[in-house]
């Protein structure tokens, strides 16, 4: 067993570029877009997508982070989680099209928590979902609007997203679980 590389550095860049174009296409431009990443790696991806969208459209797209820890439904099933900071762009989310960004989409429970969190912040016109990897196994009626890579996986496998800004390298790998090393993303099993 060992890690199989699914996406390399250049693949990730291409996927994010495509997602940025798709966001502009479906939103018919960059007006009223707000891009929110889910910590930790979703925030990094959100910033990159926002930079690309701003570049392609010539309009500065507000970007922020949305921590969902306090909205999770599994708080009493894990050791206490430390929340991460939330930063909402000054314009708020009212009337905006919010694009949520996460690294791995799995059960959908993180996104359910994120929808609740957004509802407490304001009332967007629409909420869309972008994920770098969709590994399937949804437990809730949630689907992504923009996907970097569909990656059919078995629940016993773990998916690791490593990003330059957080991990010093850039790749998506799939490994046979359940004793995967804890060095990087465990979102693959937690999301």
């Amino acid at each position: 067993m060992g890690a199989r590389i699914v996406l390399q550095h250049a693949d990730i860049s291409r996927a994010l570029t495509r997602i940025a174009h798709e966001i502009l296409e479906s939103n018919r431009g960059a007006d009223d877009l707000v891009i929110l990443g889910i910590p930790t790696r979703g925030v990094v991806l959100a910033r990159r997508i926002a930079t690309l969208v701003s570049e392609f459209s010539g309009i500065d797209v507000p970007v922020g982070s949305l921590d969902v820890t306090m909205y999770r439904d599994d708080l009493s099933r894990h050791p206490t989680r430390a929340p991460s900071p939330t930063s909402i762009p000054p314009r708020g989310v009212d009337g905006a099209t919010v694009v949520l960004v996460d690294d791995v989409l799995y059960s959908g429970r993180t996104i359910r928590a994120a929808l609740d969190a957004i509802g407490d912040i304001g009332r967007p016109r629409a909420v869309r979902l972008a994920a770098l990897v969709d590994r399937g196994h949804r437990e809730l009626p949630i689907r992504p609007d923009f996907v970097g890579k569909n990656l059919p996986s078995s629940p016993s496998e773990r998916i690791y997203v490593r990003l330059e800004d957080v991990d010093g390298e850039e790749s998506v790998t799939i490994e046979q679980g359940p004793t995967g090393d804890q060095g990087s993303s465990i979102e693959g099993s937690a999301s």
Binding site: M70, Y71, L75, T86, D116, G119, D120, I121, G122
Partner: peptide, 11 residues
């Protein structure tokens, strides 16, 4: 979270 529109968390 206390600056949000809804200040109550479901935690």
């Amino acid at each position: 979270t206390q600056t949000r529109e809804v200040r109550k968390l479901p935690t």
